[in-house]
Protein backbone atom coordinates (compact mmCIF):
# COMPACT_ATOMS: atom_id res chain seq x y z
CA UNK A 1 0.00 0.00 0.00
CA UNK A 2 1.39 3.36 -0.94
CA UNK A 3 0.36 6.92 -0.16
CA UNK A 4 1.90 9.71 -2.25
CA UNK A 5 4.61 7.33 -3.36
CA UNK A 6 5.62 6.42 0.17
CA UNK A 7 4.92 3.05 1.71
CA UNK A 8 2.29 3.21 4.39
CA UNK A 9 4.57 1.26 6.71
CA UNK A 10 7.18 4.04 6.55
CA UNK A 11 4.61 6.80 6.70
CA UNK A 12 2.76 5.51 9.75
CA UNK A 13 6.03 4.54 11.37
CA UNK A 14 7.24 8.12 11.17
CA UNK A 15 3.85 9.46 12.25
CA UNK A 16 4.17 7.23 15.31
CA UNK A 17 7.67 8.50 16.06
CA UNK A 18 6.36 12.01 15.55
CA UNK A 19 3.60 11.38 18.08
CA UNK A 20 6.11 9.97 20.57
CA UNK A 21 8.38 13.00 20.19
CA UNK A 22 5.30 15.20 20.39
CA UNK A 23 4.31 13.51 23.65
CA UNK A 24 7.65 14.52 25.17
CA UNK A 25 7.47 18.04 23.74
CA UNK A 26 3.97 18.39 25.18
CA UNK A 27 4.92 17.17 28.66
CA UNK A 28 8.01 19.37 28.79
CA UNK A 29 6.41 22.53 27.41
CA UNK A 30 3.52 21.97 29.80
CA UNK A 31 5.92 22.01 32.76
CA UNK A 32 7.70 25.07 31.38
CA UNK A 33 4.37 26.88 31.01
CA UNK A 34 3.26 26.02 34.55
CA UNK A 35 6.56 27.17 36.04
CA UNK A 36 6.67 30.32 33.95
CA UNK A 37 3.11 31.17 34.89
CA UNK A 38 3.75 31.31 38.61
CA UNK A 39 7.49 31.93 38.94
CA UNK A 40 8.08 34.06 35.86
CA UNK A 41 11.17 32.01 35.24
CA UNK A 42 12.02 30.24 32.03
CA UNK A 43 13.40 27.04 33.41
CA UNK A 44 16.47 26.26 31.33
CA UNK A 45 17.16 23.36 33.70
CA UNK A 46 14.01 21.66 32.44
CA UNK A 47 15.95 19.57 29.95
CA UNK A 48 18.50 18.68 32.60
CA UNK A 49 15.73 17.59 34.94
CA UNK A 50 14.30 15.41 32.18
CA UNK A 51 17.77 13.88 31.77
CA UNK A 52 17.97 13.49 35.55
CA UNK A 53 14.68 11.58 35.53
CA UNK A 54 16.03 9.15 32.94
CA UNK A 55 19.28 8.71 34.86
CA UNK A 56 17.55 8.14 38.19
CA UNK A 57 15.49 5.44 36.45
CA UNK A 58 18.64 3.85 35.06
CA UNK A 59 20.44 4.03 38.40
CA UNK A 60 17.48 2.63 40.31
CA UNK A 61 17.50 -0.41 38.02
CA UNK A 62 21.24 -0.94 37.82
CA UNK A 63 22.28 -0.09 41.37
CA UNK A 64 19.21 -1.06 43.39
CA UNK A 65 17.33 -3.43 41.09
CA UNK A 66 14.18 -1.30 41.24
CA UNK A 67 12.03 -1.82 38.15
CA UNK A 68 10.46 0.59 35.68
CA UNK A 69 7.06 0.79 37.33
CA UNK A 70 8.41 1.86 40.69
CA UNK A 71 10.82 4.23 38.96
CA UNK A 72 7.82 5.84 37.31
CA UNK A 73 6.87 7.05 40.79
CA UNK A 74 10.25 7.32 42.50
CA UNK A 75 12.18 9.24 39.85
CA UNK A 76 9.69 12.15 39.61
CA UNK A 77 9.59 12.31 43.40
CA UNK A 78 13.39 12.44 43.63
CA UNK A 79 13.69 15.09 40.93
CA UNK A 80 10.73 16.97 42.42
CA UNK A 81 12.54 17.10 45.77
CA UNK A 82 15.66 18.29 43.97
CA UNK A 83 13.55 20.97 42.31
CA UNK A 84 12.05 22.06 45.63
CA UNK A 85 15.54 22.34 47.08
CA UNK A 86 16.71 24.35 44.09
CA UNK A 87 13.76 26.70 44.40
CA UNK A 88 14.24 27.20 48.13
CA UNK A 89 17.98 27.76 48.00
CA UNK A 90 18.45 29.69 44.75
CA UNK A 91 15.45 30.68 42.68
CA UNK A 92 13.74 32.33 45.63
CA UNK A 93 16.50 34.93 45.80
CA UNK A 94 16.02 36.24 42.29
CA UNK A 95 12.26 36.68 41.80
CA UNK A 96 12.54 40.43 42.18
CA UNK A 97 15.23 40.71 39.52
CA UNK A 98 14.89 40.92 35.77
CA UNK A 99 13.62 37.73 34.13
CA UNK A 100 16.87 37.08 32.36
CA UNK A 101 18.54 36.20 35.65
CA UNK A 102 16.17 33.27 36.05
CA UNK A 103 17.21 32.03 32.63
CA UNK A 104 20.91 32.49 33.39
CA UNK A 105 20.69 30.81 36.78
CA UNK A 106 18.82 27.77 35.51
CA UNK A 107 21.21 27.62 32.54
CA UNK A 108 24.02 27.35 35.09
CA UNK A 109 22.16 24.55 36.86
CA UNK A 110 21.71 22.77 33.52
CA UNK A 111 25.44 23.02 32.76
CA UNK A 112 26.32 21.78 36.22
CA UNK A 113 24.04 18.74 35.92
CA UNK A 114 25.02 17.88 32.36
CA UNK A 115 28.73 18.32 33.12
CA UNK A 116 28.44 16.13 36.21
CA UNK A 117 26.79 13.27 34.38
CA UNK A 118 29.17 13.62 31.44
CA UNK A 119 32.09 13.32 33.82
CA UNK A 120 30.58 10.21 35.38
CA UNK A 121 29.01 8.42 32.42
CA UNK A 122 30.49 9.89 29.21
CA UNK A 123 28.34 11.06 26.32
CA UNK A 124 27.71 7.81 24.49
CA UNK A 125 24.47 6.93 26.26
CA UNK A 126 23.32 3.72 27.90
CA UNK A 127 20.45 1.44 26.97
CA UNK A 128 17.47 0.82 29.25
CA UNK A 129 15.41 -2.26 28.50
CA UNK A 130 11.68 -1.99 27.84
CA UNK A 131 9.82 -3.46 30.84
CA UNK A 132 8.77 -7.07 30.31
CA UNK A 133 5.06 -6.31 30.46
CA UNK A 134 5.29 -3.94 27.50
CA UNK A 135 7.58 -5.86 25.19
CA UNK A 136 6.33 -6.98 21.79
CA UNK A 137 3.70 -5.17 19.79
CA UNK A 138 0.49 -5.27 17.84
CA UNK A 139 0.11 -5.71 14.12
CA UNK A 140 -2.56 -3.23 13.10
CA UNK A 141 -2.64 -4.34 9.49
CA UNK A 142 -1.26 -1.12 8.06
CA UNK A 143 1.61 -0.89 10.55
CA UNK A 144 3.33 -2.56 13.50
CA UNK A 145 2.71 -0.80 16.82
CA UNK A 146 5.18 -1.61 19.61
CA UNK A 147 3.36 -1.91 22.93
CA UNK A 148 5.75 0.37 24.76
CA UNK A 149 5.21 3.22 22.30
CA UNK A 150 1.46 2.84 22.58
CA UNK A 151 1.87 3.05 26.34
CA UNK A 152 3.94 6.24 26.12
CA UNK A 153 1.34 7.94 23.95
CA UNK A 154 -1.57 6.91 26.16
CA UNK A 155 0.27 7.74 29.38
CA UNK A 156 1.41 11.15 28.17
CA UNK A 157 -2.08 12.06 26.99
CA UNK A 158 -3.40 11.06 30.42
CA UNK A 159 -0.68 13.06 32.20
CA UNK A 160 -1.31 16.13 30.05
CA UNK A 161 -5.08 15.88 30.44
CA UNK A 162 -4.92 15.48 34.21
CA UNK A 163 -2.52 18.38 34.56
CA UNK A 164 -4.87 20.50 32.49
CA UNK A 165 -7.79 19.36 34.66
CA UNK A 166 -5.87 20.03 37.86
CA UNK A 167 -5.01 23.56 36.86
CA UNK A 168 -8.12 24.61 35.02
CA UNK A 169 -10.90 22.80 36.89
CA UNK A 170 -9.95 22.19 40.53
CA UNK A 171 -9.90 24.45 43.58
CA UNK A 172 -6.13 24.05 43.95
CA UNK A 173 -5.75 25.05 40.31
CA UNK A 174 -7.88 28.14 40.85
CA UNK A 175 -5.54 29.23 43.68
CA UNK A 176 -2.64 28.66 41.34
CA UNK A 177 -4.18 30.72 38.56
CA UNK A 178 -5.13 33.44 41.01
CA UNK A 179 -1.58 33.54 42.36
CA UNK A 180 -0.30 33.84 38.79
CA UNK A 181 -2.43 36.95 38.34
CA UNK A 182 -1.83 38.56 41.71
CA UNK A 183 0.31 36.75 44.29
CA UNK A 184 0.04 39.46 46.97
CA UNK A 185 -3.74 39.42 47.01
CA UNK A 186 -3.87 35.62 47.17
CA UNK A 187 -1.42 35.66 50.05
CA UNK A 188 -3.59 38.19 51.85
CA UNK A 189 -6.45 35.69 51.63
CA UNK A 190 -4.41 33.27 53.69
CA UNK A 191 -2.91 31.06 51.00
CA UNK A 192 0.70 30.14 51.58
CA UNK A 193 2.00 31.45 48.28
CA UNK A 194 5.74 30.83 48.82
CA UNK A 195 4.93 27.19 49.59
CA UNK A 196 2.74 27.03 46.51
CA UNK A 197 5.56 28.42 44.39
CA UNK A 198 7.97 25.80 45.73
CA UNK A 199 5.48 23.02 45.07
CA UNK A 200 4.78 24.34 41.59
CA UNK A 201 8.45 24.26 40.70
CA UNK A 202 8.78 20.79 42.22
CA UNK A 203 5.73 19.68 40.22
CA UNK A 204 7.18 21.03 36.99
CA UNK A 205 10.51 19.36 37.69
CA UNK A 206 8.73 16.12 38.56
CA UNK A 207 6.75 16.31 35.33
CA UNK A 208 9.93 16.64 33.28
CA UNK A 209 11.42 13.71 35.21
CA UNK A 210 8.33 11.63 34.44
CA UNK A 211 8.92 12.37 30.77
CA UNK A 212 12.51 11.30 31.34
CA UNK A 213 11.44 7.95 32.80
CA UNK A 214 9.18 7.30 29.85
CA UNK A 215 11.94 8.33 27.44
CA UNK A 216 14.57 6.05 28.98
CA UNK A 217 13.60 2.87 27.09
CA UNK A 218 13.05 4.73 23.79
CA UNK A 219 16.10 6.93 23.55
CA UNK A 220 19.48 6.12 25.04
CA UNK A 221 19.96 7.39 28.58
CA UNK A 222 22.57 10.05 27.96
CA UNK A 223 23.77 13.29 29.61
CA UNK A 224 23.14 15.25 26.41
CA UNK A 225 19.50 14.18 26.01
CA UNK A 226 18.33 17.17 28.03
CA UNK A 227 20.07 19.95 26.15
CA UNK A 228 19.08 18.38 22.83
CA UNK A 229 15.39 18.49 23.59
CA UNK A 230 15.12 21.71 25.59
CA UNK A 231 15.96 23.99 22.68
CA UNK A 232 13.27 22.37 20.53
CA UNK A 233 10.85 22.71 23.43
CA UNK A 234 11.71 26.41 23.65
CA UNK A 235 10.72 26.75 20.01
CA UNK A 236 7.49 24.85 20.74
CA UNK A 237 6.79 27.24 23.60
CA UNK A 238 7.41 30.27 21.40
CA UNK A 239 5.00 28.82 18.83
CA UNK A 240 2.30 27.94 21.34
CA UNK A 241 2.76 30.85 23.69
CA UNK A 242 3.35 30.20 27.38
CA UNK A 243 0.08 31.75 28.40
CA UNK A 244 -2.08 28.67 28.02
CA UNK A 245 -1.84 25.12 29.31
CA UNK A 246 -3.89 23.57 26.55
CA UNK A 247 -1.93 25.56 23.99
CA UNK A 248 1.32 24.04 25.22
CA UNK A 249 -0.13 20.52 25.00
CA UNK A 250 -1.67 20.93 21.56
CA UNK A 251 1.37 22.60 20.01
CA UNK A 252 3.65 19.95 21.52
CA UNK A 253 1.81 17.07 19.88
CA UNK A 254 1.22 18.97 16.63
CA UNK A 255 4.88 19.88 16.19
CA UNK A 256 6.00 16.35 16.94
CA UNK A 257 3.67 15.20 14.20
CA UNK A 258 4.93 17.83 11.75
CA UNK A 259 8.49 16.77 12.52
CA UNK A 260 7.59 13.13 11.87
CA UNK A 261 5.91 13.93 8.57
CA UNK A 262 8.88 16.02 7.47
CA UNK A 263 11.08 13.01 8.10
CA UNK A 264 9.03 11.11 5.53
CA UNK A 265 8.76 13.71 2.81
CA UNK A 266 11.93 15.78 3.17
CA UNK A 267 14.26 14.14 5.69
CA UNK A 268 17.01 16.77 5.34
CA UNK A 269 14.77 19.37 6.95
CA UNK A 270 13.46 17.23 9.79
CA UNK A 271 15.85 18.65 12.38
CA UNK A 272 15.08 22.25 11.45
CA UNK A 273 11.39 22.17 10.56
CA UNK A 274 10.19 23.18 14.04
CA UNK A 275 12.44 26.25 13.95
CA UNK A 276 11.13 27.14 10.51
CA UNK A 277 7.56 26.82 11.79
CA UNK A 278 8.56 29.09 14.66
CA UNK A 279 9.88 31.70 12.24
CA UNK A 280 6.65 31.57 10.21
CA UNK A 281 4.49 31.89 13.32
CA UNK A 282 6.55 34.89 14.42
CA UNK A 283 5.89 36.51 11.07
CA UNK A 284 2.18 35.82 11.02
CA UNK A 285 1.20 35.94 14.68
CA UNK A 286 4.05 37.26 16.82
CA UNK A 287 2.30 36.52 20.13
CA UNK A 288 2.20 32.79 19.39
CA UNK A 289 -0.75 30.69 18.32
CA UNK A 290 -2.36 30.50 21.75
CA UNK A 291 -0.59 33.42 23.37
CA UNK A 292 -2.08 36.47 24.89
CA UNK A 293 -0.63 39.64 23.46
CA UNK A 294 1.63 41.08 26.12
Amino acid sequence: MEILGISSQALFGQVLIGFINGAFYAMLSLGLAVIFGLLNIVNFAHGAQYMLGAFVTWMLLNYLGINYWLALVLAPVCVGLFGAMLERTMLQRIYKLDHIYGLLLTFGVALLLEGGFRQQFGVSGMPYAIPRELQGGQNLGFMFLPNYRAWVIVASVVVCASTWFLIEKTRLGSYLRAATENPKLVQAFGVNVPMMITLTYAFGAGLSALAGVMAAPIYQVSPVMGSNIIIVVFAVVVIGGMGSISGAIVSGFALGLIEGLTKVFYPEASSTVIFVVMAIVLLVKPAGLFGRTA
Binding site: M90, L104, L105, F107, G108, V109, A110, L111, L112, L113, E114, G115, G116, R118, Q119
Partner: peptide, 10 residues
Amino acid sequence: VMMIQGATFI
Protein backbone atom coordinates in the same frame (compact mmCIF):
# COMPACT_ATOMS: atom_id res chain seq x y z
CA VAL B 1 35.08 22.68 32.84
CA MET B 2 31.37 22.53 32.03
CA MET B 3 30.53 22.08 35.71
CA ILE B 4 32.80 24.93 36.71
CA GLN B 5 31.15 27.15 34.12
CA GLY B 6 27.74 26.16 35.45
CA ALA B 7 28.77 26.91 39.00
CA THR B 8 30.24 30.25 37.89
CA PHE B 9 26.94 31.15 36.26
CA ILE B 10 25.08 30.38 39.47
